[in-house]
């Protein structure tokens, strides 16, 4: 019994300590943001690494998710004779939930794991140490541009995911299932609100971008500097970032869409 209690206590303390360290780490990194302005090339590189390189998987997944949504929605709506609402169903699901969430999950798997591995290996091969000895703060030079790159890339990726998904849904609904084209768009426009739905979706994806990239760079920076340590850290990034996205999605949804 005391053994169990002791382990519980140790775990709790360990987790708390790690969360505290992650926050201090974030503060130090954020302090490096102003210094990035004159050197935006560094951030560009990271937008390329996490944004452009994730583009394909995001666009393809968005397309399929949109198509599936249209197909499933059609099967449900056709019973109520309300198939012209298909555009609303597809677009609201994408813009409010699936766009930000699925894009963030894919981002965690594609870009987040790569970030952790990269920074972890830089630590293991003493590149971060070498920078420190060259009087260059790796938190500012290495981590800050990656965090900012992720924060910029994520909302764009989520928007592309939603837009491609709606086009995919449009293709299935109008092209394959024969839903009226005009009704598809006009119903959508009548029901989807720029502030309530679109802007909130964008805010969600910005938060996800920050959290996923933050977890990824922290795990890399905090990794045990061995090949095993880096591989563990990479796995942790994907698991923790995915859980954080889903948990935060619930909280944000409750905050944004709850008061109606």
């Amino acid at each position: 019994m005391t053994g169990f209690l002791q382990r519980l206590g140790a775990t709790t303390l360990g987790v708390t300590e790690r969360i505290g360290r992650a926050h201090l780490f974030l503060l130090h990194v954020l302090a490096g943001f102003p210094g990035l302005l004159p050197r935006f090339g560094l951030v560009m590189k990271q937008i390329y690494a996490s944004g452009v390189l994730s583009l394909l998987i995001i666009a393809v997944s968005g397309l399929f998710v949109g198509m599936v949504l249209a197909l499933q929605g059609y099967n449900t709506l056709v019973d109520f004779g309300a198939t012209e609402s298909l555009g609303v169903v597809v677009s609201l699901s994408l813009v409010r939930e699936l766009g930000p969430v699925v894009a963030a999950l894919l981002f965690a798997g594609r870009a987040g794991s790569a970030l952790t591995a990269e920074i972890g290996l830089m630590k293991a091969t003493e590149q971060l140490s070498a920078m420190e000895m060259m009087a260059v703060n790796p938190l500012h030079r290495v981590v800050a541009p990656r965090l900012l790159g992720g924060i910029i890339a994520m909302p764009l990726l989520a928007a592309i995911f939603s837009a491609v998904g709606i086009l995919g849904g449009h293709f299935v609904a109008v092209g394959l299932l024969g839903v009226d084209e005009g009704a598809f768009w006009s119903q959508m426009q009548a029901k989807v609100d720029l502030y309530e739905d679109i802007a909130n979706g964008v805010i969600k994806s910005m938060v996800f971008g920050l959290v996923v990239t933050w977890i990824a760079v922290f795990e890399g920076y905090d990794a045990v500097p061995t090949s095993e340590g880096v591989s563990r850290a990479t796995t942790r990034t994907v698991v923790h970032a995915s859980l954080a996205v889903l948990g935060l999605d619930f909280v944000l949804t409750a905050l944004m869409f709850g008061d109606e």
Partner: peptide, 27 residues
């Protein structure tokens, strides 16, 4: 080429946002 790609990416993202604003919702 990194810059060109990032430029294209940002344009694609902005176009997607614009589509969401103009075509999906009704600005």
């Amino acid at each position: 080429s990194v810059q060109i790609w990032v430029g294209l990416f940002v344009i694609a993202g902005m176009a997607a946002l614009l589509m969401l604003a103009m075509k999906v919702s009704n600005i």
